[in-house]
Design a protein around this nucleic acid. Structure first.
Length: 292
DNA sequence: TACCAGGATGTTG
DNA sequence: CAACATCATGGT
């Protein structure tokens, strides 16, 4: 068993709400408030579950429970649920924007639910480009169920993210039975190859500045401004990365501010000046507001 | 029916 | 460089 203390500003309730936002989510499962996930660590599947009891309590269900595996699971969870961010600092600057501040009070203790694996956030954001979220989750489910490894435990089957090696070996036509557009298929292949060939490395990117990371990301066909910023906030702890083109953000801002229409990109840049340093985090709170 | 979805790219004027 | 077409399908 792995005990992971949680910071003062932490809400398991809001975390579960976000993790439960779509029933087609296939890279984690929630059963009776317990979170299950499979990771592929050193070419080996690791299934673990997480519950809350005065801190997070993780349990590994696969055979290998070595110290190394335990520490990797611990690190993954700390990263996934963003346990180290200074939320007080975010709440401080949020006072400059009444609407955002109200969201911070309503969702107090909500931490950015990230994607510790950069490859995952890039693939997921390409899938989500331009189409509605439900359809995006369907595409992701087909991709993961077809090309991801799985592990069955107590009658439930859990899936791991397909590896870059697996997806890099596919052709555009391999995606078409699953209703991917040729563009999406090519973009996913491009990204997968970049990881396999070492052109993209999460470890290396993590050492660079925002501008340098973004430059490397958008150099790949299929990664534009939205995808780069989305992945940087979800996978690289760029709390100020701002996916300003995001339709979900537009809808949430319209609702929360009571606007007549959706805000323009220019208006969003102006508004977000008040969120400076935490524009990604603010975006995440606005997304969360779409869940009620 | 037309238009919009967690956009990005290639082409055209 | 801005405007437009294209993608592939589900939802409204």
């Amino acid at each position: 068993m792995i005990y992971i203390p949680t910071p003062e500003e932490f809400s398991y309730k809001e975390l579960l709400k976000f993790l439960s936002r779509n029933e087609k989510e296939c890279l984690h499962s929630i059963i009776d408030d317990v979170i299950f996930k499979v990771l592929e660590i050193d070419n080996e599947l690791v299934l673990f579950s997480i519950s809350f009891n005065n801190g997070l309590v993780a349990t590994i269900h696969t055979d290998n429970q070595s110290q190394v595996i335990q520490e990797k699971v611990r690190t993954y969870i700390e990263d996934w649920f963003d346990l180290t961010a200074d939320l007080k600092a975010f709440y401080d600057i949020a006072q400059q924007d009444l609407i955002l501040f109200q969201l911070c009070q309503k969702y107090h203790g909500l931490r950015m639910v990230g994607m510790p694996n950069l490859f995952e956030s890039l693939v997921w954001s390409v899938i989500g480009q331009q189409i509605n979220l439900n359809f995006a989750y369907s595409l992701k489910q087909r991709l993961v169920h077809t090309f991801g490894k799985s592990f069955t435990f107590q009658g439930e089957t859990f899936y791991a993210l397909p590896t870059p090696e697996t997806l890099a070996g596919l052709q555009i036509e391999d995606f078409q039975p699953y209703q991917f557009s040729r563009g999406k298929a090519q973009y996913i292949i491009n990204i997968s190859k970049a990881f396999v060939e070492g052109i993209l490395s999460q470890q290396k990117l993590a050492l660079l500045s925002y501008d340098e990371i973004k430059k490397q990301l958008v150099a790949i066909k299929g990664i534009g401004n939205w995808t780069a910023n989305y992945s940087m906030m979800k996978s690289l702890k760029s709390y100020d990365a701002f996916p300003v083109e995001d339709v979900g953000l537009h809808n949430a801002v319209k609702t929360q501010y009571g606007l007549a229409g959706k805000p323009s990109i220019a208006e969003l840049h102006q508004m977000s000046a008040n969120w400076s340093g935490w524009r990604g985090y603010a975006t995440f709170y606005f997304w969360h507001s779409l869940l009620g």
